[in-house]
Structure formats: structure tokens, C-alpha cells
Simulated assay, not measured.
Amino acid sequence: MQVEIWSDVVCPWCYLGKARFEKALAGFAHRDEVTVVYRSFELDPGKVRTEPLLDMLTAKYGPQAAEMEQRVAGLAAEEGLGYRTDREIGNTFDAHRLLHLAREKGLEGEMVSALFRANFAEARAVFDAGVLVEVAVEAGLSQESAEAVLGDPERYAEAVRAEEREAVELGAGGVPFFVLGRRFGVSGGQSVEVFEKALERAWEASA
């Protein structure tokens, strides 16, 4: 059974959802027969400049933005995840292009984890080409292959856009968006229990 996860590397609920889904999958009886594929989705595809995250959130939500971030940091800590609130926000299109390279090389899971860790736990600017190459190497990709993709803006560009269009066609209003066996959808960073039930239901339907 295939599980597809539409997410963005700067989405905190995608970060939490990934951890919770993985806990559910670890306890799933048929986990060895489940293939996980990450799909591209940009929260802000038109974003041009990189800026401090809290500045952006404060402009959008007001003075309660910092408190909101601290609440998410607490939820991340409950999942054993690092979470820094002093990180930046920027355009993630290049990160998604590198994820397609990683999928081609069989390293997609490693790349997703490395990008999430770099952004949330280490507050590294995953919008910067140099940082992206470093993260790609940490995930197991070669420096040369990562630099080649970043040096050619058309490499995997259409693949990223195609997955974003597919998310819309499937009814995803945001991310994370989980599609299990092309039969069931789960939206948001739900609890481990919700993911456990979704896995069981999708497996039974596919039998």
C-alpha cells in the first residue's frame, strides 16, 4: 500500500504530522508493505524574500504570534523534536526540486528528514543554495548532483508543479495532506491514534 504525503519543509504541522504518522506506522502490523512517498506543496509559492519567521507571523496574526509559536514548540517537544522559533521563512521551491532528485536516488525519506531538521531544529536557512547543498549531502546525495539541480532552474520544476496541481485536484486545502492507498485522505498533523485508524481502514479496503 502506498501512502502519499503532501507537505512543505517549512510547515510546522507537516513536521509534527510526519513524526506522529511514523509512530503510527511503526506499530502497524503491515508496515513492511507500506511505501511512503512525499509530494510537493508550497505554502507560499509567490514568496520572494527571506525574512525572520516571527516578523512574518506578527504581521499576519498580531502580537500573539510569538505565543502561538511557543505552543507549537511545546507540541514538538512532546514528539521528541527540536523546534527553534528564531528561524527564517522564504521560498521553498528549490528544496522541493531537490526532494525530487532525492526520490530518484532512493533517498527521499532521508532528504525530507534532513530538511525538517535543518529548518526547525537548527534554524538553518533552507532557502539558501549553499545550505541546501549541505543538507542534501547530509541526506546522502552527492554535492555535484545537488549543485547541478540548483544550477538549472528547470530541473524537476514541472514535477513540483504537477504534484501541487494534483493536491488541488484531490481537494487538499492545505498541508500536511495524507492519501492512503488512493482511497482515504487525512488532513493535518493529526494524533497517532487517528493515523493508526486510517492505516487499518485503508489496509482493509485494499485487501
Score class of each variant (00 low, 15 high):
G106F: 00
A19V: 00
Q70N: 11
G82H: 01
F177W: 10
A59L: 12
M68F: 10
A102F: 08
E122F: 15
L54G: 13
K60L: 06
F116A: 00
G185N: 11
T92K: 06
Y61G: 06
A29R: 13
V179W: 00
A26T: 06
Q2F: 13
E67N: 07
E79N: 02
G109N: 11
F178H: 06
G130R: 00
V9N: 04
R31N: 11
A139S: 12
W6H: 10
Y15C: 01
E104T: 04
R49C: 15
V131C: 11
H100C: 04
A121D: 07
G140C: 03
V10R: 02
R20P: 12
L16W: 02
G46D: 12
T50W: 09
E196F: 07
D8E: 12
W6A: 03
V160Q: 03
G27M: 15
E200D: 14
R20T: 12
A136K: 01
L81E: 05
E108P: 01
F184E: 01
T50V: 15
D94I: 09
A66L: 09
R201D: 01
A114E: 00
V48G: 05
A24K: 02
C11K: 01
E147S: 11
K197W: 05
F127Y: 10
E67K: 11
P52S: 14
V37Q: 09
V72G: 07
K18D: 14
E4Q: 14
L170V: 06
A29G: 15
W6P: 08
L75N: 08
A76G: 07
E88Q: 12
C11F: 02
E158S: 10
A172H: 02
A95V: 06
A76L: 10
A172K: 02
A139L: 07
E22F: 15
A207S: 08
I5R: 02
A139P: 00
A65M: 05
I5S: 02
R103A: 13
L16I: 14
L53H: 12
M1D: 05
A205H: 09
A198V: 14
W203R: 08
A205G: 09
Y61A: 13
A162G: 05
V126S: 00
D8S: 14
